[in-house]
Amino acid sequence: MPTVNEQLQAAAISHAVDLQHLSNAEAHKIIKLLNSVDSDLRAQLIAAVERLGAESYTAKHMNTVLASVMALNKEIYSVIFEAMAASVVEIGKYEVAYQGALFTKVIPEQVLVQVDLATVNARQVREIALARPFQGRLLKEWTSDLEASRAAKIRDGIRIGMVEGQATDQIVRRVMGVKAEGYKDGLLERSRQDIESMTRTAISHIAQGARDKFYKENADIVGEVRWLSTLDSRTSAPCRLRDRLVYENDDGHAPVGHQVPWGLGPGRIHWNCRSTSVPIIKEYEALRLAKGLPESTRASMDGQVPQSISYGEWLKGQSAARQDEVLGPTRGKLFRDGGMSIDSFYNDKSKYLTLEQLRERDAAAFSRAGL
């Protein structure tokens, strides 16, 4: 039977996968919010550019006629902040509840009656989410910065177009992009990429912050934490360096058996970080439990750091249904029957390849999988 620490490690990998799915959904929701004002923004841009006029164009005049455009831009980012703030606080609460339920499930009942599990309250979660910076700024500050950056892109696009003598529709196209290209050719595409990165990073920040707080509140049983960067092999250099390393469960997170610093921690060490952590329960003797517990309980609480496994190894041990849930039905079948590895589903920028791209890359795998 797996030890408590082995069960916690397997659960951490599975949970990290689920959080990635949640992060994808939240990023999609926020981008949809940002896009919701596109039609109004386009209409106001057209009106503003036509009011500018090539003969009367000045920076001061442009700021005046763009007032309604900038007000709309500011308004949507205010809506985005409120939506993000509500989401990350709820995700933080969920993470605390998940960790509590997980500990209750895997730690033997005979142990739990002697060691009270502590929790993290709603006020502490909200502080982690909204009052602790990630990548140097608070969530509200990042939202404000992205709003200002998008406003600057709008002004720059108009300014360049006016200087080049472009027509109104050309200027608006430069800023907004065209439908045939999925609007990805416009200057505002970068704003969508930026808001997606902020959303993903904010979610990983609160999830890891809630985990850290829960582990520290239960430092009487959690002696150390392990860094896990096993979502796939296309991790960043800082995360590859720290993958599977062990750290003390305290504010300093001192390295255990190595000299690589914790830095900002998993999920927060860089933008879009997908690394996570897993708690390591103290050895049975260190817990100073009452004597007379069954040998099976003592064995499950051996406290040893389990042999680490990769994301691919973990996924191979899951049911077909879980594989399909993680990868999608077609990729799941390619993984099981087509001989394709996890790495083969990604390009060199860690983005999922489409099924058409996968077929072009390895048609034989589709044939082996009967697809």
Rank of each mutant, 00 (worst) to 15 (best):
I128C: 03
A129R: 04
P133D: 01
P133N: 03
P133K: 05
Q135H: 09
Q135P: 02
G136D: 03
R137G: 04
R137H: 10
L138D: 05
L139F: 04
L139E: 03
K140V: 10
E141L: 00
W142M: 01
T143F: 05
S144I: 02
E147L: 10
E147A: 15
S149K: 12
R150N: 15
A151S: 12
A152M: 13
K153F: 13
R155D: 12
R155P: 06
I158M: 06
I158R: 06
A167S: 12
T168F: 07
Q170H: 08
V172N: 00
V172S: 02
R173T: 15
R173W: 13
A180G: 07
Y183P: 01
G186I: 00
L187E: 07
Q193F: 10
D194K: 14
I195G: 02
S197N: 09
M198N: 11
I203G: 03
S204Q: 14
S204K: 11
H205Q: 05
I206G: 05
G209C: 06
D212S: 07
K213P: 13
K213Y: 12
E217W: 00
A219R: 15
V222P: 03
R226N: 07
S229T: 14
L231I: 12
D232N: 15
D232V: 07
C239K: 10
C239L: 08
R242F: 05
V246I: 15
E248S: 12
